[in-house]
Amino acid sequence: MWGVGLVDRIDRKRGPLPQPLPPAGGAPVSLCGDDCFPPIAHPLPQAGGDRGEGPRPFRENRTTRKARELRLNPTDAERRLWRALSRRQVAGVRFNRQVPVGPYIADFAARSEKLIVEVDGGQHDAQATYDEARTRHLEAQGWRVIRFWNNDVLGNLEGVVAAIERALAEKPSPRSPPACGRGSA
Rank of each mutant, 00 (worst) to 15 (best):
Q98T: 12
A110M: 02
R14S: 08
V153K: 00
A106H: 11
V99G: 05
L168G: 03
A179C: 04
I10N: 02
G15H: 02
P28I: 05
A179G: 06
R97P: 04
S173G: 13
A140L: 08
S30M: 10
D50E: 06
L21V: 13
G142V: 05
K66V: 11
R134N: 01
I116A: 01
D76L: 10
V160C: 06
A128K: 08
A140K: 11
G52L: 09
R51I: 15
V29W: 01
L138I: 12
G142S: 02
I10D: 00
W2F: 14
P43H: 06
V161E: 01
W2Q: 11
A133N: 09
G25S: 03
R14P: 01
L44M: 13
Q98V: 10
R51T: 15
T129I: 10
D34C: 06
A24Y: 07
R83S: 14
W143E: 03
F95L: 10
P22W: 03
Q127S: 08
A84T: 12
L70F: 15
I105L: 06
A47E: 14
P22I: 06
L70T: 11
E78T: 08
A167W: 02
P100T: 10
D131C: 00
E165D: 09
S86Y: 14
F148N: 03
L85E: 00
R80A: 07
V160T: 10
I164W: 02
A77G: 00
H124L: 05
R80V: 11
A24G: 07
P18T: 07
A126M: 02
F58P: 10
A67Y: 05
R147H: 07
D120P: 08
R79Y: 11
P39Q: 12
V117I: 08
A126K: 04
P55N: 07
V117E: 00
K13S: 14
P55D: 07
Q19R: 15
V117S: 00
R83D: 14
